[in-house]
Design a protein around this nucleic acid. Structure first.
Length: 393
DNA sequence: GCATCGATAAGTGCCTCTCA
DNA sequence: TGAGAGGCACTTATCGATGC
């Protein structure tokens, strides 16, 4: 992809896709006129950076919320979206098309503009990059999960609201929707999966369960009684409609294999497919998160560290810098091993708290156990590097 | 304004457990 | 087996409420 050079281009051109690949930059005449006017009115336009114009259009968007400012910013973030989508595609070996990943991120522009806070010291480009990654990752994970879900797993975890939306979307008559919903409620009432640990692997209910579901259904229905096979078909139809409604662009893996009356792509999936792939994704994600956080939070940690009193800094220096054991430090400082342990833990906790607060307010990270665990790992690594190779920290 | 009291948080000591 | 951390009990520091 050829990168855009001028500010005018950056705020008025969009990527055009040829099949699934980027072919060229296309200029939007309206945005081009608007940007030219702005540049002409600014006597120092040559010196003003793209970051200024990003902040300028963001300010306009915040105060007036007009389409023009959003369009300028969407044009500006094309490259960020491009590189993020490309990186995520390589990282996750995604089966989704590049154009899809690119579009997925750009559909959330409004959300990014709403949450971006320039005063936090992060550029819009950097902030968008972080959010795009998160959006694509979540979308991939969600799609992967549903794609490999069995009909029964999908039906089991669907909410009534989503199922109803799916059926209405398919244009079914209200009587048919009611019958399907009734069958689904009976399914939810009677069927309790034995493999509750992993809803995606939920197998088909056994014949006795189908009989019970059918009996309950017929008891509640005023229509002609159905057989177990008919109730099963009804629910399978519901599952397929929900799948196609929730994820319309992608071919479901439980669709019949071409040329075969029976059997689905789902049947061909190895039993460990989802777990290994998800573990891989999560591992890569954690490693990437750690690297990204390390560079971003370096300055924050340095500031937090110099705020500690001298004895605390000496304790950290002895432990992380000189590599002394807690027992050795205890002898040197004339205290007990457990006091050294407690103080080290206390300092780590204090630094972790600083990190967490900064991440929450600046990057809008939602703090959960995983995020805090990652931060804790980063902190530990950072302390070792800082006290041994300060230039690399 | 000052002294007292109670609640709470933080620190410490001892012992023990977990893990590599 | 040694390093490090956690549980429990106790002490100390801090802070707000109350009474004089």
């Amino acid at each position: 992809m050829q990168t855009r050079e001028s500010v005018l281009e950056k705020f008025s051109t969009f990527l055009q896709f040829d099949t699934d690949w980027v072919s060229r930059w296309v200029s939007d005449p309206k945005l081009q006129r608007s940007m030219k006017n702005c540049l002409a009115q600014s006597s120092q336009s040559q010196q003003i950076s793209e970051h200024f114009w990003a902040l300028y259009w963001h300010k306009i968007w915040q105060t007036q919320s007009n389409h023009l400012s959003a369009a300028h910013l969407t044009a500006y973030l094309q490259e960020v979206s491009y590189w993020t989508a490309k990186k995520m595609m390589l990282t996750f070996s995604s089966s989704q098309s590049f154009a899809d990943l690119f579009q997925i991120s750009l559909t959330k522009i409004e959300k990014i503009l709403a949450k971006f806070e320039p005063q936090q010291g992060v550029t819009l480009e950097k902030y968008a990059s972080l959010v795009f990654r998160s959006i694509i990752r979540d979308e991939l994970r969600q799609r992967r999960e549903v794609d490999i879900c069995s009909d029964w797993g999908l039906l089991h975890k669907l909410s009534q609201k989503k199922l109803l939306e799916s059926l209405r979307y398919q244009g079914l008559k209200s009587e048919t929707i009611n019958e399907l919903l009734k069958a689904w409620k009976c399914f939810q009432t009677i069927f309790v999966p034995t493999e509750a640990r992993n809803s995606r692997k939920i197998p088909e209910p056994d014949p006795a369960i189908w009989t019970a579901i059918t009996q309950l259904y017929n008891k509640q229905s005023t229509q002609k009684p159905l057989t177990s096979e008919q109730v099963k078909k009804l629910l399978e139809t519901g599952a397929k409609m929900a799948r196609s409604y929730l994820y319309p662009k992608f071919v479901s893996v439980d669709a019949p294999k071409p040329g075969f009356e029976q059997g689905t792509f789902l049947d061909d999936l190895p039993a460990t497919f989802d777990e290994s792939l998800l573990s891989e994704i999560i591992a890569q994600e954690e490693a990437e998160n750690r690297n990204q956080m390390r560079s971003l939070l370096n300055a924050v940690l340095l500031r937090a560290l110099v705020k500690l009193d001298v004895p605390s800094q000496k304790l950290l220096q002895l432990y992380y810098g000189q590599g002394l054991t807690q027992q050795e430090i205890a002898q040197q400082l004339e205290m007990k091993q457990y006091t050294v342990s407690r103080r080290l833990a206390s300092h780590r906790q204090s630094l972790l708290l600083t990190l967490a607060q900064w991440s929450q307010t600046t990057l809008h990270y939602s703090l959960n156990t995983d995020v805090l665990n990652n931060m804790s790992i980063i902190l530990e690594e950072w302390l070792k590097v800082h006290y041994n190779h300060p230039d690399q920290a």
